[in-house]
Design a binder for these strands. Structure first.
Length: 353
DNA sequence: AAATCGTGGTT
DNA sequence: TAACCAAGATT
């Protein structure tokens, strides 16, 4: 006879095992009345969308140092924010982050909405993030369902329906457990459980506070859950990138359009990666094609990029992009694939210099 | 509503 | 090493 999963058991586990995260108010502090800063909860939740805690930490510290409040962020320059987000991925998040900050300031007096519905109306805040902010920042009993919760619920109830079909069923299971007391800590507790014990592979069932309630564990199917529909395999795409360095060290870069891949980010001029014929170089120069190519894998395709480099004169006038002065260029402002191109070009350009 | 959208760590 | 995975949102 199995026990029924009790939210209180999880909360007790959380009280003793909560991870120390830069945006988190510890359960002890929370119990003494400390409330989280909604700005920091929002920022962390957006950064954590499909992104690991380890990757987010440094970006979160950097953002909150540069912009301590939503008002500060709303007043930031687009290019500065995109540059600071570079490397974290899913760049629509950064564009929506700015839109959201400015909407909070312009339409809500600089105060985040408290309800799930109010939060859902803001850019970049979807069902998960709205519920998470409302629960964590305002301690409201919203049903928070992320990948961790899906996994925990699938195992707790031994649900074999594959995702995303199982999503509604898993959400109902999560709703049935969400408590009226300490819903904010509970939401974080389920996610911590999924991140540290009920992990995708080799879950540590032996130390799980819900061990005796877990149907999958009782059956031995925990490692197979949740089931997911097979993913399509990634095709390989090809392209070319042009790196032009002026004699004063300026580099030819272009701001990519807001829509689409790497939208709003800096990049090297070049072809699109859809098989279209290679475009003319951005300016007339003795281009040198490198032997090595930049390889990078995106969410849904592999990319192999040829890299062409050129030294150009002081009066070079590009048809695409703008020369960025040496002092204004930061490698860290580039998305990762563009950093790879830069590193290849850097090798030969410095060798020749 | 299926496709699109990044990256780095783990297995 | 290739596949899998992460506190999903948008269109």
């Amino acid at each position: 006879m199995r026990d029924t999963a009790d939210p209180l058991d999880l909360l007790h586990w959380y009280d003793a095992n909560a991870r120390d995260l830069p945006w988190r108010v510890s359960p002890r502090a929370r119990a003494s009345g400390v409330m989280p800063d909604p700005y920091r909860i929002w920022l962390s939740e957006v950064m954590l969308q499909q992104t690991t805690v380890a990757a987010v930490r440094t970006y979160f510290e950097r953002f909150t140092t540069l912009w301590p409040s939503v008002t500060d962020l709303a007043a930031a320059e687009d290019a500065k924010v995109m540059g600071e987000w570079a490397g974290l991925g899913y760049y629509a998040r950064a564009r929506n982050l700015l839109k959201c900050a400015r909407a909070v300031v312009a339409d809500h007096g600089g105060i985040f909405p408290v309800t799930r519905e109010g939060l859902l109306g803001l850019p970049g805040i979807g069902p998960y993030t709205a519920a998470a902010i409302s629960a964590i920042a305002f301690d409201r009993p919203e049903v928070v369902v992320d990948g961790n919760v899906e996994r925990v619920m699938a195992r707790l109830h031994d649900i074999h329906t594959p995702l995303p079909t199982a999503k509604p069923e898993l959400t109902r299971a999560a709703a049935a457990l969400t408590p009226e007391t300490r819903p904010g800590d509970y939401a974080q507790a389920v996610m911590d459980l999924g991140a540290t014990i009920c992990t995708p592979k080799s879950p540590a069932c032996g130390i799980c506070p819900w061990l005796r309630a877990c149907a999958a564990r009782a059956t031995g199917t925990q490692a197979e859950l949740p089931r997911k529909l097979a993913k399509k395999q990634k095709p390989t795409r090809f392209g070319i990138a042009y790196v032009a360095r002026r004699h004063d060290g300026a580099l030819l870069l272009e701001r990519r359009p807001d829509k689409g891949l790497l939208g709003g980010m800096l990049g090297w001029p070049g072809s699109d990666w859809n098989g279209a014929p290679a475009p003319a170089p951005p300016l007339e120069a003795p281009w040198q094609m490198l032997d090595e190519e930049a390889r990078h894998t995106f969410t849904h395709f592999h990319l192999r990029l040829r890299v062409a480099v050129a030294h150009v004169g002081k009066d070079a006038t590009p048809e695409l992009g703008e020369f960025m002065p040496k002092h204004a260029f930061r490698r860290s402002d580039l998305p990762t694939v563009m950093r790879k191109v830069f590193d290849l070009a850097q090798g030969t350009l410095t060798d020749r210099a």
